[in-house]
Each structure stands twice: as C-alpha cells, then as structure tokens.
Design a protein around this nucleic acid. Sequence first.
RNA 1: GCCGGAGUAGCUCAGUUGGUCAGAGCAGCGGAAUCAUAAUCCGCGUGUCGGGGGUUCAAGUCCCUCCUCCGGCACCA
Length: 529
Amino acid sequence: MGSFYLSTPIYYASGEPHLGHAYTTILADVLARYRRRAGDDVLFLTGTDEHGQKIQEAAAAQGVTPLELCDVMAKRFEAAWEEMGISHDRFIRTTEPEHIAVVRALLERLYDNGLVYEAEYTGWYSVGQERYFTEKEIGPDRVDPIAGGPVQRIREKNYFFRMSEFREGLIRHIEDNPEWIVPATRRNEVLGFLGQGLADLSISRPRSRIHWGIPLPWDSDQVTYVWVDALTNYVTASGAIEPGAPTEERGFGDGRRPSWWPCDVHLMGKDILTTHAVYWPTLLMGADLPLPRKILAHGWWVVGDTKMSKSLGNVVDPLDLREQYGADAVRWYLMREMPTGQDASYTPDRFLTRYDELRNIFGNLAHRTLSMVKRYRGGTVPDAPAGGLASETGRALAAYRRGLDGYRFHEGFAAAMDLARAANGFVEAREPWALAREPARAGELDETLATLVRTLAVLAAMFEPVMPVQTRELALRLGLAGVPLLADLEAADLAGHAVAVGQPLFPRVDTGISDQENPRLLDPVEPDG
RNA sequence: GCCGGAGUAGCUCAGUUGGUCAGAGCAGCGGAAUCAUAAUCCGCGUGUCGGGGGUUCAAGUCCCUCCUCCGGCACCA
C-alpha cells in the first residue's frame, strides 16, 4: 500500500504514434495496472511534447498555427492509447499554461541559485536546413547530412546551465544506488559517459530563430531549450511546484506542498537515456528537488529477419494486428517477447507463435474449464476444496511478483503462463470426463472443477496488467464483478457462482498475417521521446 | 579509436556466489486422451556451453588471449 508515480516520455507531436511510442506506453500501463492491483494509489503520466523548431516548421508547412497542429496530434496520441487500452491518469501537454508556468518557475529557481550564465554557443549551422548539426552528424567533410549542402561555424547567444558542477554528485549517486538506472548495462554506459567529463548545458535558443517555445523569465528574447521544457513535465504533473505562489512558497524540495514528486520510475527508450539520466537529474539537483527513484531504459524493436524484409521489402506493423487479434494479443506479444530492457526483433512468425500460446494454453484452458462446469455441474461452481494446484499456484505467484517487482515483465508473465500449463496438465491428470461417468467420484470431480475455476481467477488477476480486456471478460464469466486483486484471491470464494461459457477469449484467426495480405511498409523502429 | 555487453540444442533464450548446470519454450518425431478453439497431455535432444590457453580436486560459471556480433561515446524532440 502506498503511492506510485510513473511516467512515459512525452512524445514529440510532429510525428504519428508508432510502435516505439506504443511499447513504452504499454510497458508503463502494465506497471501502472500491476501497482493498482497491489493496492497503490497510482499516477500514470504520459503526454505530448509540443514546442520546438520541428513543430514550428511543420505547422508553417501546413498553414496552421503550431498550437492547431499540436491539438490535432495530441488527439491522435490519445486515440492511439485508447485503442491500446492505456490507463493513464494524466495526459500532459507542454503547451498547457500550468506547464509553461512551472518551466519558468524552475528556470527562475536555477537562475536564483546562480546556476545560469550567458555565453555564446558555437556550432555548425546549415542555412539550408535552418538548424545546427553535431560534429558527428556533419562528418569529417562537414556537410549538411540531409541535403549535402555546406555548414558554417556560427555563434549565437545562449544561456547555459552549470551542469558540469553536478557531475561528481551524479556519479556518486549512481554508484551508491546500483538499481537507480536499469538495466545495468545502461547504467554502465551513463557512468562511462560521465567519466569523459561533463560540459554545461545550453538551455535556451534565440527567439529570432525559434519562436515556438517558452520565453525565459529573465530574457524574453530567448526561448527554453526543448529538452528542459519537456523534462519538466514530470514535475508539472506531480504538483510539486506552485508557480502562482510567491517565490519562497513555490514548493520544490521543501516538503511543504503535498505532491507526487519524486517520480517512482521514468520509463523510456534507450535513445533518450542520457537526457533522463544526466540532464534531468542535474537540473533537479540545481533546483533543489529530489531525484526520481528509478530510471528504466528499454530496448528497441527491430525488424527481425533481415532476409525476409529485404526480399519482401515490407512487413506488418505489430500495431496493425490489433484490429484482427485485439489489443490484448498485441500487448501480450510485446511484453512477453521482449526481455525488458533488451532489444528484440519483430517477425510475424513470432507474433503468431505467441498468439497461439495465448489461445491454446490460456484461452483454451478457460474455455474447457467453463465448458466442463456447465456440462457436468449445470454451470454452477461446485462447493468443494479448490487447493488442487496449491503448490504450483504459490510458485507461480512468487515468480510473477519477482518478475514484475524487478521490472522483468517477460519473466513474470512467463510464470503466469506456466501456471496455465500446469492447469492443463492437471486436467489431463484428473480426467474430469472419466470422473463424470462415475457417480461415486462426484466429490473428486467437484474438487477438480473448483480448483480449475479458482486457478482461472488467479490467472485473470496475474494477466490483467497485460491483457485488461479479456481478463475482465473472463472474470465476468466466472461470476465476479471484476478481475480480483491478488491480495483478495485467498478470500475469494467462487462456490455457487454461475459461470458463462461464451465464445473463446482468443479465437482462432484464419486469415493469417503470414499470407502477406495487406502488408504495410514499416521503417526500422526507433522510438523517440 | 575508447568504454561496455553478448556468443549455450534447428529457432528464441534460462543458467545467483565454480561442484545433478547441461536446461525451458517453440519447431520435429512417437504416443495418450476427448472436457475444449484439432485446442491438451506424456515421451524423445551424442549440444566440443564461439576458438585456444590457464587457475582448481572440480569451470558455460574465474583469469589470459583470439574471433564474431551488438550497444554507448551529449544538445539528435
């Protein structure tokens, strides 16, 4: 029992929602649902990042205002999450007045703490692209990597945050808290990064060049660098800062304001780990705010089988599978197939294998159990001891909790599926159909069915975070009001419940995806913030 | 180039602090059963645990070296 605050990155509103966004968000949703079932109060935050040059340019190209464009895009993300069953509590947008005020309050705090100075930013600027490129991007030939045109060394006024002052403190924090950045390999990378030294961070851009941003409190000719703007959303949503209050009463780390801060876990793709594990913590240190409790960087989906994608030139986007297989199946695949934190490759074949697992092991267990209760006991759960799979259930629950608590979701759900396998084995061992032929063994049959029904309730509770739709359906068929909490399972008494058989939870889908009908081009997946 | 990770059955991978650790799932082969979505269950693996060397009574499990693959190396939203 407690509270749990988790976040996805806010997604940049210049592009459509894609698999990378969806994976992070589903991961967060699974965690949010799991914590809710554990009895926690949860704040699950996601949203859109709406300032910056790309938005400004995209809006201009479409002949709309930046905000009009963002309104459309934010709705698109919200709609996508609705389709995928995402249960976020708050959808934040960086164009919200509250957020803008919090960003300015945070900047003011840094400024007041003497951590901001004015300097000249020097970089390689492409006139054609109207933007800077990094040394890496322009390469040894120093050309615009997009159009191939020339780049020139130019200077502009920026304000800088004294990030370098926090380097040693951050290193110490990472070393003292081995579980702060997970997985460990990412933690090592951050330490390696910090080991090379840490420069100060440019936190503003001239408004003459980028107007679509949050003006600095002390210099309205400069707008806030988008990353500073974006990262601050985590604090905005937490309620830790009251921008409208007098400076000394705004909150921050003084504990005077009740808030969700610090965040329990920031989830993100590995591509934006540095900003979350270096920029963000140092900014928080500078503003006297506590650091988030955990930073989890997950891997990327890569399009597997290079040969296939090369020869066919296309592959089905897993998100498109929702229409045919349902959101639960897509979520199951994404959570079960990718070891949390690592990369995984997507292939239609693997999706089908995972779907078959779901359909045959879990879906069929539910269907055969409900059918037998109906056939042998008139659809009423027998009043009999239901401890037939007690040790298997105990083991599964322990492994499940170990997995989810340890952010190894794939392991946790594998443990749940193992329990379903054990239950199928239990059916074979007890042979209810044989028991039903012998009136003298009615008690055994009752116990068998009671055990199976109870196991279905346990499975519904274990699978709910990843498959909220069908587990709810299953719970209803078991005569429950909803999916039970794990903690309530012991007390749950299903005896006497009227069950409904219904259609299979995960039906056989005949129009397979491997027949290459309706393929869609899928770019290599690189989730961004 | 520097730093880090990984190479275990056909495929995807588990394998804490060295001693039933040579495993699971999928695929394949054989069998059983019929409640169920022809869905399930049981049985079957002679794998040099990337190559080589070393430490040890004992090494996927520690050390050295080589090979291969991958990731990170900042303003990319």
